[in-house]
Amino acid sequence: MIKYLSPLLVFIVLAGFLAKGLYLNPKEIPSPLIGKKIPDFKLSGLSKESPLVFSDDLLGEPFIINVFASWCGPCLDEHPILIELADTKAIHVFGLNYKDNSSNALNWLEKHGNPYQSIGVDPKGVVAIDFGVYGVPETFLIDSDGFIRFKHVGPLNRETINEIFKILEELPK
């Protein structure tokens, strides 16, 4: 009897998975870097007079890395939220300017406001590869020892900001 029932049973299990699958996003890729130390980098600043940025200099306090570019539409979508975040002065926000033209980026920040305490320029996307960036904008939360605690792909929204603050609170001070 089980022989004749087995197609039905297999199918029911399969259908269960398919139903679950409807509520998953196959395009979202979790980062293997969570819990790992951030890769070392050395980047020049956005304007000529700004100094080089070293990854080690950023450590000591938790901070946020936000990957952005002036050519990226969704970056503009999340921009107001970033500005809001910057206004609270709760956390250092580092901008990683991804494959962009520096003067375009400066104009863009002039026009829409600058939420970043410091900015590093990655014109060829080399550092971004080390961070496993695959779509701009992307946002990382780094703890004071330089370990990546959280990553978000796509434009930020209030929920993600809340999530970031929740993780921040749980971090050992």
Partner: peptide, 17 residues
């Protein structure tokens, strides 16, 4: 479509069983 699939295939396999 999933509901339809479950209905058609589920009923057919039940009939088969």
């Amino acid at each position: 479509i999933l509901a339809f699939l479950v209905l058609v295939v589920g009923a057919s396999f039940s009939l088969y069983a």
